[in-house]
Write a protein that binds this DNA or RNA. Structure first.
Length: 477
RNA sequence: GGCCCAUUCGUCUAACGGUUAGGACGCAGCCCUCUCAAGGCUGUAAUACGGGUUCGAUUCCCGUAUGGGCUACCA
């Protein structure tokens, strides 16, 4: 067991095979929260031992996604690809201590064995032939250049994993094989590197996806062979798509970057992910990073998998937009604005639309309406709001508005209502067409706030353009 | 196939032997209202199934079912 007097050391260890999966992001987040809560250390390690699959630029994507989410680490990033000396000396030690052994079967031979076992309907296991080769002969054949892998000598006893989330899990020896540590081309394999690194980095707690639970007895055996303490484990339930299958690209947005590009705020995504498998225990849902760091505990992590619900993420994002300072929202909306409105207009518009936009993209669309006149009018709105008499009624309204000097919501509303009364029509008969004229659509922020914010010149221009468009019936004068 | 894990409203979850099984998203209705939102209120909807243990099981144990993971010279 780990030394309980020292601070915990945890790590996030993604393989750089693409973008950062939301499941990975959640794993990283839980590690980080645990480290902060326990005043420990969080490190990042890139598992790029798979030479065929890993790529430099792919780890860059993970790094930038983590930075965007605010998942900052205390140590790293460490790259396994640059730690090969460590693995080499570890394997030599295991070999000389008799904890591991060389096996000289070819991949093809093993494949035949596996197929035979499959056909006979019995589980495949490595024959263990390599265990019978004497160390002298093994060394001799290796020196002679004979191709071989290195396998771990698994203990012939039940391996117990004490999981902080799942409790005690036992793996009978029949289920465990002498798995390969080093390939015949000399490349160390994943399970081996993980344990060597976790040992060398003095990792005390391993929080990772549930898909690794079945691998854990291998790791426990390896830590034993390495002669180092076994870290504590906490396996997190998978994140699933709405079809209850492991979340993947197939489901739409499975990557952090895709949510960023969809106008989701990192704070909201972090909050949402934190609650996917963990709960503070109260009925609170909107939690700041500080609160999470203060209250996180492994004991409150659930064991079952969870479905990623985009609807709820959107709701949560809206909650953040409703609370965030306008300056902040403006800064985050800017990337989506081709021609932003003046800053003061933008800030005021944000307060008008913050409860009407669920993403920064939607917010950008709203702000764009203040920078450019509507390019078109909603056809359904035209049909519904524009009657034969509308143009004449609107014409009178425009005359009245043109006379308003204090261009603020209250006087504007008074002017419109007075015009409606003069004409003997309901205010709605003017309000709805006016909104359509100013914004192009029939829904949106309270009309008089919009009119005021647009400014007299812009508002009147848009109204005139609209009048020109609705085939104003010629007055008989 | 073998081994392992999981199972509370459609979804995220709370209840760590005793609750009218709570909250949130979604959905529906009402209120507010110039529209749309937001907000408020109300409603909708769950302990997979079968056995035990217990005075009492969502909770503990065993089966079954369903879903998932692992079973590579991938990670």
């Amino acid at each position: 067991m780990h030394d309980s007097s020292s601070r915990p050391r945890v790590r996030f260890a993604p393989s750089p095979t693409g973008s950062l999966h939301v499941g990975g992001a959640r794993t990283a987040l839980y590690n980080l929260l645990f480290a902060r809560r326990e005043r420990g250390t969080f490190l990042l390690r890139i598992e790029d031992t798979d030479v065929e699959r890993s790529r430099e630029e792919l780890s860059g994507q993970i790094l930038s996604a983590m930075e965007w989410l605010g998942l900052d680490y205390d140590e790293g990033p460490f790259y396994q690809s640059s730690r090969t000396d460590l693995y080499r000396s570890a394997i030599e030690r295991l070999l000389t201590e008799g904890r591991a052994y060389r096996a000289f079967e070819t991949a093809e031979e093993l494949d035949v064995e596996r197929k035979k076992a499959d056909a006979a309907g019995r589980p495949y296991r490595y024959s263990g032939a390599g265990r019978e080769i004497s160390p002298d002969e093994s060394d001799r054949r290796a020196r002679a250049g004979e191709r071989h892998v290195v396998r771990l000598k698994m203990p012939a006893e039940t391996i117990v994993v004490e999981d902080l989330v799942r409790g005690r899990v036992e793996f009978p020896p029949e289920a465990l094989d002498d798995f390969v540590l080093v390939r015949s081309d000399g490349h160390p394999l994943y399970h081996f590197c993980v344990c060597v690194d976790d040992a060398e980095m003095r990792i005390t707690h391993v929080l990772r996806g549930d898909d690794h639970l079945a691998n854990t007895p291998k790791h426990v055996a390896l830590f034993g062979a390495l002669g180092v303490p076994v870290p504590a484990f906490a396996h997190l339930g998978m994140i699933l798509g709405t079809d209850r299958k492991k979340l993947s690209k197939r489901h739409g947005a499975a990557a952090v970057e895709e949510w960023r590009d969809a106008g989701i705020l990192p704070e909201a995504l972090v909050n949402f992910l934190a609650l996917l498998g963990w709960s503070p225990g109260e009925d609170r849902e909107i939690l700041s990073r500080e609160e999470m760091e203060r209250e996180f505990s492994i004991a409150r992590i659930g064991a079952s998998p969870s479905v990623f619900d985009p609807e709820k993420l959107l709701w949560m994002n809206a909650q953040y937009l409703a609370r965030m300072p306008a300056e902040e929202i403006l800064a985050r909306t800017m990337p989506w604005l081709h021609s932003p409105p003046p800053r003061d207009v933008g800030l005021a518009a944000i307060d008008l639309h913050r409860t009407r936009a669920r993403t920064t993209i939607e917010m950008a669309r709203a702000l764009a309406g203040y920078a450019a006149d509507p390019a078109e009018y909603d056809p359904d709105g035209m049909k519904k709001q524009v009657k034969p008499e509308t143009a004449a009624q609107m014409g009178k309204l425009v005359e009245r508005l043109a006379a308003v000097s204090d261009w603020t919501p209250l006087p504007l509303e008074a002017a419109l209502r007075a015009s409606a009364e003069d004409q003997g029509i309901s205010a709605g008969k003017l309000i709805h067409p006016t909104r359509l004229a100013l914004t192009g659509v029939t829904v949106g922020a309270p009309l008089f706030d919009v009119v005021a914010l647009l400014g007299k010149e812009t508002a009147l221009r848009r109204l005139q353009n609209f009048l020109a468009r609705v085939d104003r019936p010629r007055p008989q004068d």
